[in-house]
């Protein structure tokens, strides 16, 4: 056994052994805190395992059958998750692009504006969501005060499905648009000057330059940003939990809230784990499709 291991180690060059040594800490953390919990979670998803009833009886696919036939999961949770994901990523991208262009100009107070724009990204999402909940509070919120000032009656934002969903979306965009802005700004600054000079010589207007020069050159960066952010948006939790808790009456529930409620409100670790696995499979498929699309975009722009 030892001889075999020594053989394997000696077959590797010094460079490879050094590389293995370097990745060992990260790999250990990955295995302990990602792989092992996923395996435990996957195992739990096939068992009848409530936190107060830890017998862990094997029940096969029963939890999966329940989730995949649960009308709330199919008709509310999944649509909400995808609407939030697509809307948040799309709006954040557009706003982030606009902000990146703004920050790409030199003007007085540039540093101050840049810092202010990046502020939401520096705040923990749970704090941002809490402050947004009070901002839209119908009695004490600044939005309510403004509406009263202009003579408009108060709106019970969080008491109805779509207004509360819009606030969740608004909060998510508010937090994440600066992230897009930051990365797109870095990309903008790294673009070569020549194509822009050529466009200028050809008398192309600003919009035409943007659509025919800037945007194609930014495509690979945009693609990667959208991919990363979409995967992240799929598991949005803090904003929804703090702002609406998935309510009113489950109408703003998204995938992560569904899994959380099964696990930590109902204390059903088996069903909660199955929900998490179902979500993981869905996002894997979505991510694979998006990855193919991003790859194609990158190839087109080469």
């Amino acid at each position: 056994m030892n001889a075999r291991r020594n053989g394997l180690l000696t077959r590797l060059g010094e460079k490879e052994r050094f590389a293995l040594l370097l990745i060992a800490p990260a790999a250990t953390v990955l295995v302990l805190f990602q792989i092992v919990p996923i395996v435990i979670g996957a195992n739990a998803s096939f068992r009848d395992w409530q936190l107060y009833n830890p017998k862990e009886t094997w029940i096969g696919l029963a939890h999966y059958r329940y989730i995949l036939s649960d009308p709330i999961f199919l008709t509310v949770v999944l649509p909400n998750t995808f609407v939030l994901m697509f809307a948040s990523v799309a709006i954040s991208l557009v706003v982030g692009m606009a902000l990146a262009h703004l920050l790409n100009w030199n003007f007085r107070g540039h540093t101050l504006v840049q810092t202010m724009i990046l502020l939401p990204q520096m705040i923990a999402p749970v704090i941002a969501a809490t402050s947004m909940r009070w901002t839209f509070n119908d009695q004490f919120g600044v939005v309510a005060a403004f509406l009263r000032f202009i003579g408009y009656g108060q709106i019970s934002w969080l008491a109805e499905r779509w207004p509360s969903f819009l606030i969740v979306l608004f909060t998510d965009v508010w937090i994440w648009a600066p992230w897009f802005a930051l990365i797109l700004l870095a990309a903008l600054k790294s673009l070569p000057r020549e194509p822009f000079e050529a466009a200028q010589i050809d008398a192309a207007g600003r919009w035409r330059t943007f659509t025919h020069v800037t945007l194609p050159m930014l495509r690979p960066v945009i693609g990667v940003c959208v991919l990363i952010r979409s995967i992240d948006a799929f598991r949005t939790f803090d904003q929804v939990w703090v702002l609406t808790g998935g309510g009113p009456a489950r109408t703003t529930e998204v995938f992560s809230i569904y899994a959380y409620i099964e696990t930590f409100v109902n204390l059903d670790f088996g069903r909660g784990s199955a929900a998490a696995i179902v979500g993981a499979v869905i996002i894997l498929i979505v991510a694979w499709i998006m990855y193919r699309a991003v790859d194609r975009l990158a190839n087109v722009s080469r």
Binding site: N137, D138, Q139
Partner: peptide, 16 residues
């Protein structure tokens, strides 16, 4: 009672 009371927790109600 405020229409948004359906969303109120104890803190919001006590604040009012």
């Amino acid at each position: 009672s405020p229409e948004a009371m359906t969303t109120y927790g104890r803190n919001e109600a006590n604040a009012i």
